[in-house]
Computed example of a mutant assay.
Amino acid sequence: MKFDFVDKAAVATLTITSNLLEFRRHNRAVDAALLSADVVARTSGVFIRKTVISGPVTRGLRAYRAATREAGQ
């Protein structure tokens, strides 16, 4: 699973990329990010899952911390 956080001044984007074998971990990390902050997510792909989460910087950082914490468990 790979996390990529980009701060674009007013808007931050978090990209979570994983393969088919990490499907459950990917969904748990995305759910944790969405529950912790009020952000927008777009998911695509079957074998390579890619989710782009975007929102204000403070909420994006909160989502990033929640997703990495959940993926580490």
Rank of each mutant, 00 (worst) to 15 (best):
S36Q: 13
A32K: 07
E22V: 00
L21D: 15
Q73P: 05
A29H: 05
N27P: 00
M1A: 04
A63F: 08
R49L: 15
L14D: 01
D7T: 08
V11G: 03
L14W: 03
G60Y: 02
F3M: 08
S54N: 09
V57L: 12
M1Y: 03
H26T: 11
T58L: 14
A71P: 01
A71W: 15
K50G: 01
E70I: 09
A12T: 04
L20V: 14
R62C: 10
K2D: 13
G72D: 13
F5P: 06
A41K: 10
M1I: 04
A32L: 08
V52Y: 02
R65Q: 13
R24D: 12
D31V: 05
A67W: 00
A12Y: 01
A63V: 08
G45A: 06
T43V: 12
T15S: 09
K8H: 12
R49E: 03
S44D: 09
S44T: 11
G60P: 04
P56S: 14
A63W: 04
L61P: 00
T51F: 08
A71F: 12
T58K: 15
K50A: 09
G60A: 05
T51M: 08
L35W: 06
A33E: 01
D7E: 15
A9H: 12
T58W: 08
A32R: 07
R42W: 00
F5E: 04
P56Q: 12
S36F: 00
A41I: 04
R59V: 01
N19G: 15
L21T: 14
E70H: 06
K50C: 14
T43P: 00
A9S: 13
T13Q: 09
T68Y: 02
A66D: 05
R65V: 09
V11K: 09
K50I: 15
A67V: 02
A33K: 01
V57A: 06
A32Q: 02
T13H: 06
S44L: 05
D38E: 11
R69L: 11
F3G: 07
A37N: 01
A12R: 02
F3A: 08
I48Y: 04
T17M: 10
S54F: 07
A29Q: 06
S18N: 06
L14H: 06
A67I: 05
L20C: 09
V30S: 00
S18V: 03
V40N: 12
A41V: 13
L35I: 04
V52W: 02
F47T: 11
V40C: 08
A37I: 01
R42A: 13
F23V: 14
R24L: 11
L61D: 07
A63Q: 07
H26W: 05
R28P: 00
S36L: 04
A67Q: 01
A63D: 05
F5D: 03
Q73F: 11
D4I: 11
D38S: 12
L61E: 15
V6L: 09
T17K: 13
V52K: 07
R62N: 13
A63Y: 05
F5Q: 07
V52M: 10
A71E: 08
N27L: 12
N27D: 10
A63G: 09
L34S: 03
L20G: 01
V40E: 12
A10W: 04
T17V: 15
M1P: 06
V6Y: 01
